[in-house]
């Protein structure tokens, strides 16, 4: 995130600079505490021995009687390992599938001329109006009819294409200079060769931004996996967290640990690809 912009305030008037800065840091710290407090309490709840924490100590805002093995217990007792495998597999299939279908379609829309191009583009974009919440009852019937309930196909296939990816990557491709295409054509590059050797390398930032967004939505998705799985064997990490609502006060620590583990991969991705996610999230939000 660029920090090179300064909000100019009256620099000469009012309180001295050091005092104003101190006030500003106090404000920043206060707001940080507001944002982090819920996460901190989850960590406290996960690490503390539940009996001591709730019944003996009345839930202080710091961990007591810390039990590090709670994460191992999430794997053993809450079946986190299996859920993790299913989440990872489904996410990989969805992200990979979305990348392939989006790259191919975006290529056609950006570089090729063909009848009904505008219509087909509008048709693709129209699917933004048909989120899974709207199509749920019909799609879950389709999945039942295909006998894909509790399967990797059922979890992934409806999400193998997305208008967002087509849109973002097409925008990137439109920035590829025309001369490069002509030069590539002279070199005898076919479509796939041009896509792979020229277009993709030149639009890597856009593709990265989309990949991160695609990962986030696949990993975090809830409604669909909830609708097409009915045995715990096929639960994803997110659906597994639902069990928390039935846990008693003295076993909630295991659920809290599972929630921390579920957020960990996302946290790592976000820290590694912070720039990309900001670019992806702000695409279209800010003019110019």
């Amino acid at each position: 995130m660029a920090t090179d912009t300064v909000v100019p305030t009256g620099t000469t008037r009012g309180a001295p600079r050091w005092l104003r800065n101190t006030g500003w840091y106090a404000l920043l710290t206060g707001l940080s505490l507001m944002v982090l407090f819920p996460i901190w309490m989850l960590i406290v709840r996960a690490l503390s021995n539940p009996t001591t924490y709730v019944f003996d100590r009345g839930q202080p805002p710091y961990p007591v009687d810390i039990e590090w093995d709670v994460f191992a217990r999430a794997f053993d007792e809450a079946d986190f390992g299996r859920q993790l495998a299913i989440s990872v597999a489904a996410t990989l299939v969805i992200v990979g599938g979305q990348l392939i279908t989006s790259l191919l379609a975006a290529y056609a829309f950006a570089f090729l001329r063909f009848p009904f191009k505008r219509t087909l583009f509008a048709v693709c974009m129209a699917t933004l109006m048909l989120p899974i919440e709207v199509t749920l009852v019909a799609n879950s019937r389709t999945i039942r009819e295909l006998e894909w309930l509790n399967s990797i196909q059922g979890l992934t296939v409806p999400f193998l294409a997305t208008a967002l990816g087509i849109f973002l990557i097409r925008q990137g491709f439109l920035g590829v200079p025309r001369d490069l295409r002509d030069a590539a054509a002279l070199d005898g590059f076919g479509h796939l060769q041009f896509l792979w050797r020229v277009a993709i390398p030149l639009t890597r930032p856009v593709i990265a931004a989309f990949t991160v967004l695609s990962f986030l939505s696949a990993w975090n998705s809830y409604l669909w996996p909830r609708a097409v799985t009915d045995t715990s064997e096929w639960f994803t990490v997110q659906i597994g967290l639902r069990a928390v609502s039935n846990s008693t006060a003295d076993e909630l620590n295991v659920g809290a640990a599972a929630a921390l583990l579920a957020a960990l991969p996302v946290l790592i991705i976000l820290i590694l690809f912070q720039r990309h996610i900001v670019r992806g999230l702000t695409a279209g939000a800010v003019k110019g």
Partner: peptide, 25 residues
Amino acid sequence: REAVAAYGLLAPALLIFAVFAFYPL
């Protein structure tokens, strides 16, 4: 030939949209 290539490239995405977005609508 360009048109055929384009439809080929669009086919996977359009197939998914047809089955899991427009048909359900």
